[in-house]
């Protein structure tokens, strides 16, 4: 295993144990008196007309698709930023070309109305 990850697993164990222990401890103390009214879906006191598994227009769903593209592109910028000083002017040319392609795609998506309330 690479160096330095053991501590992460130790902390992960603490981070998992903490909610587990508190939720289980609460189970021993808290009262439990469910009733039909309490167990209804909360809709401000009105009886729920239907459950939420119906059809529903998800706004901005195109943004979720755009996000995948742009996020992968930004992740490419990280290794590039780390090696920037060694790459020199070649690196500068590369980042300008890379970001230019990104911007062209971005402007196209904007003009197509992908960033609007659809």
């Amino acid at each position: 295993m690479p160096d330095g990850y053991l501590q992460i697993f130790i902390f992960l164990a603490i981070a998992i144990a903490f909610p587990t222990v508190t939720i289980l401890a609460a189970k021993l103390i808290r009262p439990s008196a469910p009733s039909i009214t309490k167990l209804e879906a909360y809709e401000c006191g009105i009886k729920a007309a239907s459950d939420s598994r119906g059809r529903y227009t998800v706004r901005f769903y195109i943004i979720a698709i755009l996000f995948v593209i742009f996020d992968v592109e930004t992740i490419f910028l990280f290794p590039f930023a780390v090696r920037y000083k060694t790459l020199g002017w070649f690196g500068v040319a590369e980042i300008v070309v890379f970001l230019a392609i990104l911007i062209v795609g971005y402007v196209w998506a904007w003009k197509k109305g992908a960033l609007e309330w659809v």
Partner: peptide
């Protein structure tokens, strides 16, 4: 499985992925 919760969750996902780009 609650309408308010579903709307909140959807908004939150849209918002968090959108702001992750300027952040990175």
């Amino acid at each position: 499985n609650n309408k308010y919760a579903l709307l909140g969750g959807l908004r939150s996902s849209a918002q968090m992925i959108s702001y992750e780009l300027p952040m990175s």
